[in-house]
Design a protein around this nucleic acid. Structure first.
Lengths: 224, 224
DNA sequence: TCAAAAGTGTTTCTCTTACACCCATGT
DNA sequence: ACATGGGTGTAAGAGAAACACTTTTGA
């Protein structure tokens, strides 16, 4: 008999900073939202735990990894999610004292394994951002290319040429113009865009057999 | 209380065909090697199950995905492995009647979910082969570039120009010459190579911020 | 000497990179 | 008017794709 739990790594970008969602139970340290799994399906349970403990619902969860844990929970199935912080107000659940966003580079003391899970989620986010347009999930319904650009820079922790970025994003067809503009402070008003979401997968262009071999062997969890 | 199990998807390439390792218990249909997890670590238990049921040991396992299952096992953590079939003789374990390699495109009836897990493993293999030199695991200690070429073609299910392939593999530095040659039937003898394995990760070249955005959104398991 | 497989080099073209300038607004 | 962020275009270079020929063996 093994105890199974789900753990949620919900990330956002604010003020050019990557942050993760943490909860605190009375008398306990900060931790990832997490809960025991009984009969339910893993993904179902993960949504439920997130909703119950933080008030967030209706977002995409992606299974990240299953970790060995000690304590009562022996196997923790982690889920990763990306959201725009201001689209989802936080509401601490019943047995939760506080919910808050916490910068990745300034984490408090956490239960064993949680920091590792967060680090792995961060790595995966970075890796996937490089080849899939998932970063739009971190922005509101409509956004400017400047905002998207900033999010990419934060995630990849690199400077991206704004002009090339714009060209590539538009060429990739992952966003569409919304028609309106936004003016905020000085500077020319920026056009607003929205993600094309799933329709886009269909349009997806085949890539040649180009990248068939690569120089990078991503270290993953292996065992002899 | 939830029952946790591990399932192993071990793949090989033979005669230009992708095959997966299946086992059969007395009175049961064919299935992936699998076993219950009790107190052990997941990866440890996965190695053990593989060894006990098929006689194979000492290979790299990569965690693939955790699936919901019905029956007694409610959560199945799957592991993916690539090996050269002829390097590992099969030895059916105690409660196993038969072990065999089975072509992916001609699977027998399997327990619910197993076919899906195999399909997902296949997809992952294909995707990862495109950017990481994992295919060498499917070959013996030493091999010719012709053999490696063939393995790539089988996995990617595409024709790769032999000359460009050779150039790129050598440039990537993932293999090194062994010095000897092999002659088999007519044709010029082929030089033998070996994988540079892990030393190679260090040499790994940084790639520019090139592939920052892409046209492909790999569909993954999501939930609302 | 012929068939079969291994190995080498070159040209073309696309995509990435790097970079300089104009536009529209708030103050 | 000027500072600030938004938007457009282009030229140079690297890398991918396509391709033709020589070499070495067994039969």
């Amino acid at each position: 008999m093994t105890q199974v739990g789900v753990e949620l790594i919900v990330m956002t970008v604010r003020q050019r900073d990557l942050e993760v969602l943490l909860v605190r139970r009375p008398g306990n340290e900060w931790a990832l939202p997490s809960g025991r799994v009984r009969g339910e399906h893993l993904a179902t349970r993960a949504s439920e735990v997130l909703n119950t403990q933080t008030g967030i619902s209706g977002i995409r969860l992606e299974q990240l990894f299953s970790f060995d844990r000690d304590g009562t929970t022996q196997v923790a199935v982690t889920y990763l999610a990306l959201i725009a912080a201001d689209r989802y107000p936080l509401a601490p659940g019943d047995d939760i004292v506080e919910v808050r966003w916490c910068p990745l580079d300034d984490l408090p003391s956490l239960p064993p394994g949680h920091a590792g899970a967060i680090a792995y989620g961060h790595e995966r986010l970075r890796a996937k951002t490089a080849y899939a347009p998932i970063a739009v999930q971190l922005l509101p319904e409509t956004f400017t290319l400047g905002e998207l650009h900033e999010v990419y820079e934060v995630i990849l922790d690199a400077q991206l040429d704004a002009r090339n970025f714009r060209r590539d994003v538009l060429a990739a067809g992952v966003v569409e113009e919304v028609g309106t503009e936004r003016r905020s402070g000085p500077g020319r008003p920026a056009r607003l865009y929205r993600s094309r979401g799933s329709e886009f997968a269909v349009i997806a262009q085949e890539r040649g057999p180009a990248e068939r071999i690569s120089r990078l062997d991503v270290p993953t969890q292996h065992t002899e």
